[in-house]
Design a binder for these strands. Structure first.
Length: 442
RNA sequence: GGUCCCUUCGUCUAGCGGUUAGGAUAUCUGGUUUUCAUCCAGAAGAUCACGGGUUCGAAUCCCGUAGGGACCGCCA
């Protein structure tokens, strides 16, 4: 049997590190098992789903290099859900309920106050035909609940091991809303069957939901799906990840000029027993992937780790690999420029700061004027090479008697305006004799 | 309140009854780079959440407690 996995985001927000980790794991599981990976857009909630999020999701996946073999929207399958709904209805597995949201909300609050189980009381099952008729006459339309019959649902979770859930602690799930729209719990079960999903790998937040879904799947067909639940990721503060938390959205990282491989490397190592390191590419991640390395305890995202990985990647880039990108930032960036500057960048685009410094025409007034004056008197003639800086500073040293930081730092500041940066030996060659003379305002 | 899960260096983790509790990353120190970064070498860092129990022996098995998370929606 071919392995088939799926990633099923709802287009109600941006993909974040947590979501994309689930996507990556499913993708990796499919790809390493010679299987299929399906992207399913869970957009049954028409009001909250937005087209812009659908395209964002696809863009994010593509940007990271996570490809899929097939994609579909749940909104295109309402007929099928209706069909399966009729089947459950005929089998007597679902029952109509007439409570309004407000009534249910009130009931729930009462249950909480009483300190009892916050589980739907199944009072709709007691309704007589006449009562139902009366409700309908009132203009009420029923929503439909699935009757949970199993007391304990057990399965062998690929990540968590033996799971044994008490289904009596859960409410009978609503499968169809009053307006006829199927809910996730149902549509997902239907699709997982119809599309031959063999492995559902998802976050721990779905664990008890899985118990419910397995019973639904069994009511429709015989469950053949193997489930795996991974621990959720936490924010670096220890809080839960939120969809509305833009700082960890994939698009925000893209806007911050983060490299895809840095994000992938983080996701492939965080919350796993793998070494925290930068991977060469997604193929390497694929070849090293093992589901069992994923931890069952929630890990936290340290943005500093991501930043460090990104910095490593930036410094690893050969000029030829990102020449096009660099030319877009500034035509004048050449190989020598890149190799001189890259060690001082956190993200590739930071190079702008250095094209400004090297190519602009602003002058700098040195604070240590007398010293710089002496230095400028000793400026070597063209052509400059790797030896120039050493010769020049030796001459300055001899004349002024300065050494170490006192000797070098004022020069760096006078030429670049910064107290840190690439090796001066190389940097002055990028600047050139003429530019340095122009720059220093005495 | 109920159900299910989690807890080992700052962080991510290995560990399946006997280990000097291992690795990665971050940190610190030294060397290289006449700065920073890189690189190399080294160091420090964990009363294994707590309390009991079982055992000759527990991070590991059992019970309890605490802390954290998830779910108990006409969201997904």
């Amino acid at each position: 049997m071919t392995t088939v996995t799926r990633f099923a985001p709802s287009p109600t927000g941006l993909l974040h590190l947590g979501n994309i980790r689930t996507a990556l794991i499913n993708w990796l599981y499919a790809r390493t098992n010679n299987g299929k990976f399906i992207l399913r857009i869970d957009d049954t909630d028409l009001e909250r789903s937005k087209d812009e999020y659908i395209s964002q999701i696809k863009y994010d996946l593509d940007w990271l290099g996570i490809d899929f073999d097939e994609t579909f929207n749940q909104s295109s399958r309402f007929d099928r859900y209706r069909e399966q709904f009729e089947k459950l209805k005929a089998d007597g597995r679902i029952y109509p309920c007439y409570e309004t949201s407000e009534e249910l909300e009130r009931k729930r609050k009462l249950l909480i106050a009483a300190g009892g189980k916050q589980v739907y009381d199944r009072s709709a099952m007691e309704l007589t035909d006449q009562q139902k008729k009366d409700y309908e006459a009132e203009g009420r339309k029923p929503h439909w609940r699935f009757l949970l019959k199993t007391e304990r649902m057990k399965w062998d979770d690929l990540l968590k091991g033996e799971i044994d859930i008490d289904l009596t602690s859960l409410s009978d799930p609503v499968l169809f809303r009053e307006d006829g729209v199927p809910l996730y719990t149902f549509s997902s079960a239907v699709d997982d069957i119809d599309y031959g999903i063999t492995n559902v790998i998802r976050g721990d937040d779905h664990t008890s939901n899985t118990a419910v879904q397995v019973e639904i799947i069994n009511a429709l067909d015989q469950n053949k799906i193997t489930f795996a639940h991974h621990a959720l990721l936490k924010a670096s503060t220890g809080d839960k990840l939120s969809k509305r938390d833009n700082v960890i959205s994939i698009s925000s990282f893209r806007e911050a000029n983060m490299e895809p491989i840095s994000i992938l490397s983080l996701l492939a190592t965080i919350g796993t027993s793998n070494s925290i390191e930068l991977k060469d590419n997604i193929d390497q991640i694929k070849s090293e992937f093992k589901l069992s390395t994923i931890s069952t305890s929630p890990g936290r995202i340290e943005i500093d780790v991501l930043n460090a990985l990104n910095k490593k990647q930036v410094q690893k880039y050969n000029f030829s690999e990102i020449e096009e990108r660099l030319k877009k930032i500034d035509e004048k960036i050449d190989q020598k420029f890149w190799e001189t500057i890259r060690g001082n960048l956190n993200v590739v685009e930071d190079i702008k700061q250095w094209t400004d410094i090297v190519f602009n025409s602003e002058t700098i007034k040195p604070s240590d004027k007398d010293y710089i004056k002496i230095a400028m008197e000793l400026i070597p003639d063209d052509p400059w090479n790797d030896e120039t800086w050493g010769q020049w500073t030796s001459a300055i040293k001899e004349k002024t008697g300065r050494k170490g930081k006192e000797l070098f730092l004022p020069l760096r500041e006078a030429f670049t305006g910064l107290n840190h940066g690439p090796e001066m030996k190389l940097l002055i060659q990028l600047l050139g004799r003429e530019k340095i003379i122009e720059r220093v305002e005495l």
